[in-house]
Nucleic acid binder design. Structure first.
Lengths: 140, 140
DNA sequence: GGTGGCTAACGAAATATTTCGTAGCAAAAA
DNA sequence: TTTTTGCTACGAAATATTTCGTTAGCCACC
């Protein structure tokens, strides 16, 4: 029993998850206020969504007091990872390279961010030299 | 009139688009055969999907002969770019950096791919040295 | 010139997603 | 205590997505 029921948040659900990830445990009111900053959405719509997410196990809730408090039941990184996997399969034929190229290519990215990615690359593969000769794969 | 009706392919539609991008103009039969390699899907299901995609303008078709031939009406790169934008907004709060970190971090990527990404980075920002001092932004 | 094999066109069901209105209850305010 | 306010639960509509069955036409072949 490693990974079975992988919840697949919908777009609306992700919107809410982001609020919860960012603000921590929140009431319906708070979540709705946040969503309302971006678009027009009714209170009961947000409530219903949170209730459905609760049923699906996407969020947990504390209903000990009259005003319930919801919190994410999915970890941000893990969820993001799954979403990338989905997109990778759905649109990039599984090639992470293409995805990254696309993400960096057609987009305005600051030099600072580019540097951070370079650091990341170096951490993933400390052997490889940035741009010049490759280290031989086999050790004699 | 720059960008208005941006078609948003569903997951099934993307599956089909990938086949078309990969194989070029194709008959329903061919598309369905490809899809069938991966999962169980009826011929008329694929047909219907292609017809709907045609209505939506996601694919174009040549129906001059009895057996229609479909081809993508969306460019692969452009579509992939939009999908990344979507995901960026939906799950990463707009941070391309986080997305790339996630894409590269929790995944098995070959050294070759990592090197290609390094090249990409150098191309995007030819000024920056891989890790050392930054070039001053302003010219005196 | 009838039959079998393909193909497109519909119509429709099953499911998933999004959005609210209404009702009932509890707590706070008047 | 009455009124007002705020919250949850529930039901249901509107829409979008996925999946097929059925029907009818075309073509090649026997």
């Amino acid at each position: 029993m490693s990974k079975k029921n992988i919840p697949r948040p919908t777009e609306s659900e992700l919107e809410i998850l982001q609020v919860l990830w960012q603000h921590g445990p929140s009431t319906v009111r708070l979540v709705n206020d946040e969503l309302s900053k971006r678009r027009d959405v009714g209170y009961t719509t947000t409530l219903k969504l949170l209730q459905l997410m609760h049923e699906k196990g996407i969020v947990a809730r504390d209903d000990s007091s009259r005003t319930h408090v919801y919190r994410p039941a999915l970890r941000e990184q893990e969820t993001q990872g799954q979403l990338i996997d989905r997109l990778l399969e759905a649109a990039f034929g599984g090639s992470a390279l293409k995805l990254v190229q696309q993400a960096l290519g057609n987009r305005h990215t600051t030099r600072e961010e580019l540097d951070q990615i370079r650091d990341l690359l170096d951490n993933i593969d400390p052997q490889a030299k940035p741009s010049a000769t490759d280290t031989p794969d086999e050790l004699a």
